[in-house]
């Protein structure tokens, strides 16, 4: 073993300057994180985190929590009401996702650079899809409520419009990433353009698209459970009512019901997705 005293530190330092005090990059990292943390504290002060009122709110938070347990349901009729709200939620998510997926196919083709030759057209389609995407689902729901009135139909339309933006983008990416060789193979074997799309492009693109649609369905069920807060149908109506009148035990029961439903749907749709895309998709999840 080397005795530290034997090492000529000055010579070592001269030979390997990088290993001594060379933490300049580390120091910049410290500055960045320190700055971010300082901003965090400033932001918290701006939002009133350090006020006395907030501290009393923490105590009230505990009261709210105590009021929530145990979850219970008032009567069998209420349970049936919640159950129908839940089914409505799933129906809204399913229909909204499907309508958006169907409408997004032509838009996805328009936005794909290898299908649409006009740069201007792809650019405009992409920007419109971006704009649609950056408007939140709740805002769409409010707009559609103004058009077709309160109820689940407004929720369906809200999902249909808001998901077109996401689907259009994903579809165009899937189409752009598709391998052209199967299509060329079919063309070289004497198949026409339609056959090329049917047997060359579709088998490659369809599983990817279908799995994306399923994935969106999963997450849309979660979002659909809050649409009722603004009056667009589903379990959110009962949930927000229960919270507003401080029936918190009922509220936690509804939340539990949502959690179980989401877990079941996640399980089924994950199985379906793996069946569709095989082991390939497992890595990306």
């Amino acid at each position: 073993m080397l005795d530290p005293g034997q090492i000529d530190l000055a010579a070592m330092r001269a030979r390997h300057p990088g290993h001594f005090g060379g933490a300049r990059r580390d120091r910049s990292v410290v500055y960045v994180f320190g700055g971010a943390f300082g901003l965090l504290l400033l932001g918290m002060a701006y939002l009133g985190f350090f006020d006395l009122k907030t501290l009393s709110g923490v105590g009230k938070l505990w009261d709210v929590f105590v009021l929530m347990v145990p979850p219970e349901v008032e009567s069998w009729a209420m349970f049936r009401l919640y159950l129908s709200g839940l089914i409505e939620t799933i129906a809204i998510a399913l229909l909204g996702t499907l309508v958006a997926a169907v409408l997004a196919v032509p838009l996805g083709l328009l936005a794909a650079r290898n299908v649409t030759t006009s740069r201007m057209l792809t650019f405009l389609t992409r920007r419109s899809l971006d704009t649609i995407r950056s408007v939140d689902i709740l805002i769409w729901a409010l707009i559609w409520i103004g058009v077709v009135g309160l109820g689940p139909f407004a929720g369906v339309l809200a999902f249909a419009t808001s998901d077109i933006g996401s689907f259009g983008k994903l579809f165009s990416e899937a189409i752009e990433a598709a391998d052209r060789k199967p299509v060329e193979g079919i063309t070289s074997a004497g198949g026409g353009r339609v056959l090329g799309v049917r047997f060359g492009l579709l088998p490659e693109v369809f599983p990817v698209l279908a799995s994306q649609i399923l994935y969106f369905f999963e997450s849309n069920v979660r979002f659909a459970s809050i649409l009722g807060v603004v009056g667009a149908g589903g379990i959110g109506l009962q949930l927000s009512e229960a919270i507003r009148v401080l029936e918190l035990k009922q509220a936690s029961f509804i939340i539990l019901m949502i959690l179980v439903t989401v877990a079941v749907i996640d399980f089924v749709s994950t199985k379906l997705r793996f069946a569709l895309i095989g082991k390939r998709g497992q890595g990306s999840h």
């Binding site: 709110g57 459970s225 949930l239 919270i243 959690l259």
Partner: peptide, 24 residues
């Protein structure tokens, strides 16, 4: 992550009153 953020916000509005605290 399964309970929607808006539901948490509704709860926190009860505890902290209207304002950005509940949202944060």
């Amino acid at each position: 992550r399964t309970v929607p953020g808006l539901v948490f916000a509704l709860m926190f509005v009860i505890a902290f009153g209207l304002g950005p605290m509940a949202g944060v």
